[in-house]
Design a protein around this nucleic acid. Structure first.
Lengths: 181, 181
DNA sequence: GCATGTGAATTACTTCACAGCT
DNA sequence: AGCTGTGAAGTAATTCACATGC
């Protein structure tokens, strides 16, 4: 497949595809393009998707249930191995084969289970206290759904996700059109 | 509140806050900073959040249920007014006060209900056929959860969302650390 | 005196365009 | 001939730094 065809399938350009790939090495053959299977495998290795990652879900609320329900993670490289919440009425519930545990057990369970990534789906107010546990447990990456800037040691990687912001970007775009009209 | 304090609370810098705001006008007072209530109101207007937006959910699968369950939309400016799916076993189900309708009714219902934004939570294979309806109904914005590039007329705004990509960015970051070590 | 708003300087990203390999 | 990989050119975004107004 050529960089041209790849760009047609995604939201980018052929030059961009080539530049991005060139950052990590030389994957294609001139005159021919890229071997899909080979490229896929090499990219998986680069992205760290050639292994499984042990993930803990913190926050058994609506976003949390949405994510577990969604289930797309296991098909990828991510295994949700524990679920935590601070609400006593939720602790003990069974969620897809896992029991919701009390957040106070986070450090011991996370260490025991070798959790490397946390999906943080809790309200902003709960962030500071939960982050103490997360930090102590030596978690290395956080997918953060709370709309706040996390304070973490340098070694911890954070990715912020905020779906409402995406919707707001849409309504902004539409409002702009209205004004132009 | 000063641009300095705002930057501390979010993932940006004070200079960035001032530059971004200056694009839309002059909101602050020198020596004092920004009046939070005033700024909030003026930004809502700019972002088109001073009105309600009528939203249709297309795809009553896992992502769709997750989004409806999440419920954060209504608290914002978005009202989900209709839900569609093509699976006969799902059509007719009640989802939080709405009945799941067959996708074939999309055009008439969307026009009738004044749907402006569609949340597209369907598999990639289903995208082309569904997009015909969406286009015909005159929808103006799409929040796209399908991992494919939508072909839309220029007037339609599209925002792509892909949570797995965020997770992959995390595992990439962690893998990089491993290699440095 | 303090913090904005903004040109100027810097840094980052994207596109161009083509030499060089298949 | 076809398509990559990549310097060079061109855009865009961010940061600096300070004159200006509260």
């Amino acid at each position: 497949m050529s960089s041209e065809e790849m760009s047609g399938r995604s939201a980018t350009t052929a030059a961009q595809v080539r530049k991005d790939l060139s950052l990590f090495g030389s994957f294609g053959k001139r005159g021919l393009g890229y071997d899909v299977a080979d490229l896929s495998e090499r990219l998986k290795k680069i992205l760290g998707l050639d292994r499984r990652w042990r993930v803990a879900l913190v926050g058994a609320g609506r976003i949390g249930s949405a994510l577990v329900e969604y289930g797309g993670f296991a098909e990828r490289s991510y295994d949700v191995v524990a679920i935590f919440d601070s609400d006593p009425s939720k602790v003990g519930e069974r969620w897809g084969g896992l029991r919701v545990r009390d957040i106070s057990q986070f450090v011991s369970v996370a260490k025991d289970q070798g959790v490397e990534i946390v999906i943080l789906a809790i309200p902003v107010e709960a962030v500071p206290s939960v982050m103490e546990y997360v930090e102590e447990a030596g978690v290395r990456g956080i997918l953060n759904f709370a709309p706040t800037k996390l304070k973490v040691p340098e070694r911890v990687a954070v990715k912020d996700v905020n779906m409402v912001m995406e919707l707001e970007a849409l309504s902004f775009a539409l409002s702009q059109e209205d004004e132009e009209a």
